[in-house]
Nucleic acid binder design. Structure first.
Lengths: 339, 339
DNA sequence: AACCTTAACTCTAACGTTTTCGTGTTGAAA
DNA sequence: TTTCAACACGAAAACGTTAGAGTTAAGGTT
């Protein structure tokens, strides 16, 4: 029934000053043992807990990390969040999550809002629309105001801050190399449009693998998809009549859709066509055939990002050198490739 | 380069008082047009934005909603979050997410921490461990301190607050009824242990459907699983040698595992055995055969919960009547049941 | 007796806002 | 010339907390 109790109320009740109460609870040597015990007992009885907002105002730090991501209904992002959350909690930080829904405007709004006192720093993956517009003033602004920012996954070279990425290019390279080692010669690529940084990088890895193995890059075998919504039909159309022996897809959904389309077109996976996707989600494991993928280790990524941010928050010196951590991917081979 | 600017700094710079600056920015009629314009121009130039923390302290409200859920890497919960976030943002609220990881202690910690000024109210789904322990003192306490709480999905009857649930029992009933209408007579149930409220309710729906159709409830056809981790083997073992023509599973994962197990055991889905799951996730749509499921409408659930909470936060009167909103499920029929 | 210590407090300022209540200046009515 | 609004602004309190700088009284030292 009782509302939250404050120092002032305790002070009044015990007929001492607010500072005495505060110091008692901090076990200050300035206060007599008697008084301290009395105050502590009373505080415990009324379940006193200091008000975070007041503390934040006083200390000018909130012990809160802002996460801004494009989308929450997305397995990879949730694993990253889990990683961040784990580390943050360990270090006494809270986490506040905002979604940009891939909208530039909402990203700006979120960032501005959280920057006004709500958080000490940010961990973010930028919205697709932002990457398209190439407008990063909002991010640069919070950084220039002294807020540390750590970017992950979709990072912006132009913005100077700590970053955590996976070796997209190398991960793609390895996957395609694996396919080549299986004697695949006609490997199709299903990617996203180029302004999405990861799509671009994975495409580069695909191409590099081909060229280093003296295989020709055939643009007819490359599909770039704008929106995930109608990917299924597009993929089917793309694969129709194509003479291929493997597919490399830059995400899980595209890989699944590719298998479905291939099956529809009368080709068997993995007997006729081997398929490798990117990102190890729930679907990959469950699917029949289970999907071979490039695992991104989202949780590690989140953990690393959180460490970087907290380190910066807690270091006294305003370190000016920023680092980009590149995390390795690992290739998980399951049933969607021939043995 | 400039740190965030405050009213005080603007005041000093323009040689007026802090109150004049504050009033100017609020376009108060007390201040001359000249001064107001000067202040506004200056504020705009330096990109002044009021400090949220200071505002929160002053207004004694944070315009922030706390979400506490057991797990983030979970499709259903993320859809709920998306629903909450959408409504919250519309109404000018922010969202802060904490994970209990299904641990009672962490749930308590999160709740206590957020209750000390960080949020105006909570939307939560309780941890499995909490349901097991049946210890709800932490939730009752924040409520008694005047913090509105809205529970969803896993709700506690014993705690008096607003709730949003789906008609678990009825959803299960409909699914099983559908199977019965297909002439299935030997329907297995794969559920969770009973202390998880939704598992219990869905089991009840299953049983009711059987009895209303004069079918016997055979406990040998019911499997209750404790942890999801090793569900695959357990389900396979359970199904081995069982003479059944349908399976109803209380979640997506169990349904998928059931199909895999059945396939392994030489039975065809849907020709020999029809399968219906619960919760419409990514896997359901992608799986082959695509899964028939009871759709929970997570986003609606989140939206409703957010509406309930915000309404309570913004109503002056301390309304004492709490409501439980029951959302309908809908049965999505795909390829995992025979036609 | 005059001074110094020390224990045990209390006061005050500060964090950044908002808002109520003053207060001094002007111009005009009486 | 006095009186009184109207105007334009400033001072101060408040939200809850902390920390450094006083303050007071008791006791001890010279």
């Amino acid at each position: 029934m009782p509302r939250k109790i404050t120092l002032k109320q305790i002070a009044k009740e015990l007929d001492v000053s607010v500072s005495t109460v505060s110091k008692s609870l901090k076990d200050s040597s300035e206060i007599s043992v008697d008084t301290k015990e009395k105050v502590k007992a009373f505080a415990k009885l009324y379940n006193y807990k200091p008000n975070n907002i007041a503390l934040s105002l006083k200390n000018r730090k909130t012990k809160t990390i802002g996460i801004i991501i494009p989308e929450i209904v997305h397995h990879f992002f949730t694993t990253v969040i889990r990683g961040i959350e784990h580390v943050a909690n360990e270090k006494g930080y809270n986490v506040i999550i905002c979604l940009s829904n891939n909208s530039f405007d909402k990203e700006v709004l979120n960032l501005e809002f959280l920057a006004n006192g709500s958080t000490d720093g940010f961990i973010m993956s930028v919205a697709k629309e932002t990457q398209q517009k190439e407008d990063y003033h909002h991010i640069k602004e919070v950084i220039s105001q002294g807020m540390p920012v750590v970017m992950f996954d979709r990072v912006i070279d132009e913005v100077i801050c700590d970053k955590v990425v996976i070796s997209d290019k190398h991960g793609a390279f390895e996957a395609v190399q694996y396919l080549i080692d299986l004697q695949c010669k006609k490997i199709a690529l299903i990617s996203t449009v180029d302004y999405v940084s990861v799509g671009k990088l994975r495409t580069a890895g695909y191409k590099e693998a081909l060229t280093t193995n003296d295989l020709e890059v055939n643009e007819d075998l490359i599909l770039k998809i704008e929106d995930v919504e109608h990917s299924e039909e597009k993929i089917e159309e793309f694969l129709k009549g194509k003479d291929i022996d493997a597919v490399f897809a830059v995400n899980e959904q595209f890989a699944v859709n590719a298998i479905k389309a291939l099956t529809k077109l009368g080709k068997k996976v993995p007997e006729d066509v081997s398929v490798i996707g990117f990102t190890d989600g729930v679907v990959s494991k469950s699917f029949i055939p289970s999907l071979s993928t490039v695992n991104q280790h989202g949780e590690d990524m989140g953990a690393k990002a959180a460490h970087l941010l907290i380190e910066r928050l807690e270091s006294e010196t305003e370190e000016q050198s920023f680092q980009t951590t590149v995390l390795d991917t690992s290739l998980i081979i399951r049933d969607s490739v021939k043995k």
